[in-house]
Design a protein around this nucleic acid. Structure first.
Length: 726
RNA sequence: GCGCCCUUAGCUCAGUUGGUAGAGCAGCUCAUUUACACUGAGAAGGUCGGGGGUUCAAGUCCCUCAGGGCGCACCA
């Protein structure tokens, strides 16, 4: 027995060495496994892409949990004999990364992006992204991730940019991408549009005002938008206002003097809300915009890009909303136009990345049309294509847990055209070029400048446009590569349920449209990692657990086990340092089990098909086999938490506490035959435990494995799962 | 407003075709130089959120109420 077993297990000394060995052997790469004869050339394929972490700094516990689940899947499949590809990468995360760098620059140098200019800012962001990338890759390796680094991708690298251009061009040519004046979510702080999903609603206690508007009383929480309101809308069936006719003009006194208002009757009005009458602000409200479109009404801008009032506000022009609001109410009160005010809880929309308060604005932006029929796809729209992956659809994808399929369908049915242009600089620049103005203006889609006098669109693409291509852009698309042929559709996508809409849905959109394939056969959704009390981890609560700190303190295997046990799909996980400590103890327990077994069975080798078991040993062997059958089924059902727990209980409380203890007497007082049988039993059982536990705790199992007297053994990472065909 | 999830031992949670309630942690009692103190043995601890129904049988299926969490929509 190796002298290392005389000391407690030392993860810090062991783990880096083992990861290096795996890398050197090349077993993360499916081709190498075939070349070295550890995977059959004709073996079935298993592929999975890693959801690319954003290059915004470092890995957090959520990433760690994702990597652990995926690594367990990858290692399990590899041990089951699949040609297993798990493909790594990182995401440039346009807005998230740029705003992070901008914030830092402003803090340190007091400069804004306009002070630096496009080129200089991009230089800085790219440099930051590169550093983040290096840190993150290093951290992924520390988690033990068996990712095929030879295929590493980045959403903004050359190949992925080519894929983005191709996708854009095809969608443009099919008329799916169009430019138009539509109402969008404008972030005055980030100075860019954002998508509906990037909005965070927070409750705010505010006032709800009732103003006298001629003969009516209108309600509003936003007095500052009311300057341009010259349409007063009511339901056509509202008996209270039956005397007013559609299109009727009314002169009335308003904030900055007398105006002429027009009556509009529209059935979208909720008669029970407020007074059943409202004025509309089409430029700054999606609902009002729709009403204005239906009745072909004028639209006027009231608030500018910076959240300041425009000259239409008269004496309030130039003021910020927060400043102007009370002053406007004061003025209306002085004029006797305030009917009453009430306390009100209002959901305010803020930008996820910058915290800016979203102001709907009508702007000229680029959109993806989700309802247009696509000739090349049998006359179906993107929306229709996206619905084909539901359980009863022709291209069905398994959702785990399946309740998320409903969430997905619900989202699709509410889907509106996707605004894909962003007014930031970091990202894929829109590949559209312009030349000339007015009647002679030209517009062309091109990856590079079409020539003299052409200027490129200033905007960049929503970051989810490039990540939507991830399952196939990483495999070489648009080229028809062997990788694409072999590994797409991927088998499993493992990600958080919080990005079903952002990402899962968009991958389905892109893949069904561009390839006519689903991007993955199964989507496994994990939950959030919370603290021991179930609270979200956040800087302000001071309850953040840094996975790398924990790795340093307790070892990767302990962190991995603690992230898995108690984690059902779709449910949030609770984490605590105590839990991690408990699994460090487990790694050491395994270590001591190995020490005992290797000492007790000194000189003995694992004999394949050893049949001469004593009756007691045969019983133990059968129970062990039953457990292996059970956990194999559970692995296939993605119930990793159960498997980890059962192996933990079996290794510790069955094998160590009962089997090892009972062996002491047998090995001392038994017959030679009994001793032999028991030694084989101990070796076989430890061997099976190591194999089964390897996906969960790869380092300590690999390290013990190196001392196991198993003839013709390979590194554990490419050994077989304890039972091959359950 | 629409929808989803949760409620089982002090805490965290298993309990997947309905068949006499389980684990880990914490706490309690005891052991103590052992493969391992990063340990072992033992006992204790629950009217499975309330009510109703289906059934020979319900933690499990159905209805209903309550509490907690979340998503979407609305937000004049």
């Amino acid at each position: 027995m190796d002298a290392k077993f005389l000391k407690p297990y030392d993860p810090a000394a062991t783990e880096p060495k083992i990861y290096e060995k795996w890398l050197a052997d090349g077993f993360f790469k499916p081709e190498t496994c075939v070349e070295k004869g550890v995977t059959a050339a004709g073996a079935p394929v298993f592929s999975m892409v890693e959801p690319p972490p954003n290059v915004t700094g470092t890995l957090h516990i959520g990433h760690a949990s994702m990597l652990v689940i995926e690594d367990i899947i990858a290692r399990y499949k590899r041990m089951r004999g699949f040609r297993t590809l798990w493909l790594p990468g990182t995401d440039h995360a346009a807005i998230a990364t740029q705003s992070k760098v901008e914030t830092e620059i402003y803090k340190e140098e007091g400069k804004r992006r306009q002070d630096l200019g496009r080129e200089e800012l991009l230089k800085r962001v790219n440099e930051f992204a590169r550093q983040s990338h290096d840190t993150i890759v290093d951290q992924m390796k520390k988690m033990g991730a068996s990712l095929d680094w030879s295929r590493e991708a980045y959403t903004l690298d050359e190949k992925r940019s080519a894929a983005v251009f191709e996708a854009f061009k095809r969608m443009y040519d099919d008329g799916l991408i169009y430019q138009g004046h539509r109402i969008v979510n404008w972030d005055p702080k980030g100075q860019t549009t954002i998508s509906d999903d990037e909005i965070i609603y927070t409750e705010e206690k505010t006032k709800f005002y009732y103003f006298k508007y001629g003969p009516f009383v209108i309600g509003t929480a936003r007095p500052e938008t009311k300057f341009g309101d010259k349409y007063v809308v009511m339901h056509p069936d509202d008996a209270r206002y039956a005397t007013y006719k559609d299109g009727q003009k009314i002169d009335l006194e308003w904030i900055n003097g007398p105006i002429t208002a027009t009556i509009v009757k529209d059935p979208s009005i909720d008669m029970a809300f407020g007074t059943g009458v409202m004025t509309i602000t089409p430029w700054h409200s999606a609902v009002d915009f729709d009403i204005a479109e239906r009745h072909k009404l004028d639209k006027e801008q009231v608030i500018d890009k910076y959240g300041k009032l425009l000259p239409i506000a008269g004496e309030f022009a130039g003021m910020k909303i927060a400043e102007a609001r009370p002053k406007i109410v004061e003025k209306l009160r002085a004029k006797g136009l305030v009917d009453k005010e009430e306390d009100y809880t209002h959901n305010i929309a803020t930008a996820e990345r910058t915290g800016g308060i979203i102001e709907p604005q009508i702007m000229n932006q680029w959109f993806v049309d989700v309802n247009k029929k696509i000739a090349a796809r049998g006359g179906r729209s993107l929306k229709e294509l996206m619905l084909e992956v539901v359980p009863e659809g022709p291209m069905h994808i398994d959702f785990i847990p399946d309740r998320f399929a409903k969430v997905y369908v619900n989202w699709i049915s509410n889907l509106r055209d996707w605004c894909i242009s962003r007014q930031i600089w970091f990202g894929h620049r829109i590949p559209v070029w312009y030349k000339g103005t007015g009647a002679t203006a030209e517009k062309r889609v091109s990856a590079t400048s079409p020539g003299e006098g052409w200027t490129q669109d200033e905007d960049t693409l929503d970051t989810w446009f490039s990540s939507g291509l991830w399952t196939f852009s990483t495999l070489g698309w648009p080229d028809k590569t062997p990788d694409l042929e072999t590994y797409h559709p991927t088998n499993v996508l493992e990600t958080g349920y919080d990005i079903i809409f952002f990402w899962v849905a968009r991958m389905i959109l892109m893949s069904t449209y561009l390839l006519g394939q689903k991007p993955f056969k199964t989507v496994y959704l994990h939950g959030l990692v919370r603290d021991a009390k179930g609270q979200k981890m956040s800087k302000s609560l001071g309850n953040i657990i840094d996975p790398l700190d924990m790795v340093k303190k307790y070892g990767t295997d302990a962190v991995r086990m603690s992230l898995i046990v108690g984690t059902g799909p779709g449910n949030d996980t609770k984490m605590s340092e105590d839990k991690i400590r408990a699994y460090k103890n487990f790694a050491n327990k395994l270590w001591n089990i190995a020490r005992f077994v290797l000492t007790a069975a000194e000189g003995e080798k694992v004999e394949k098909d050893f049949a001469a078991y004593a009756p007691d040993d045969e019983k133990i062997r059968k129970e062990r086999h039953a457990l292996m059958v059970e956990i194999t089924k559970e692995m296939d059902e993605f119930k990793f938490y159960l498997v980890a727990e059962k192996l933990y209980a079996y290794a510790w409380h069955e094998f160590a506490d009962i089997i090892l203890e009972s062996s002491k007497d047998i090995l001392k007082n038994g017959t030679d035959e009994q001793k032999k049988s028991r030694k084989q039993l101990l070796l076989h059982t430890l061997e099976k435990i190591l194999r089964a536990l390897h996906p969960f705790a790869p380092f300590v199992t690999e390290e013990i494995w190196s001392d196991m007297p198993v003839p013709d053994k390979r590194p554990l990472i490419v050994e077989s799962w304890p039972i091959m065909a359950p």
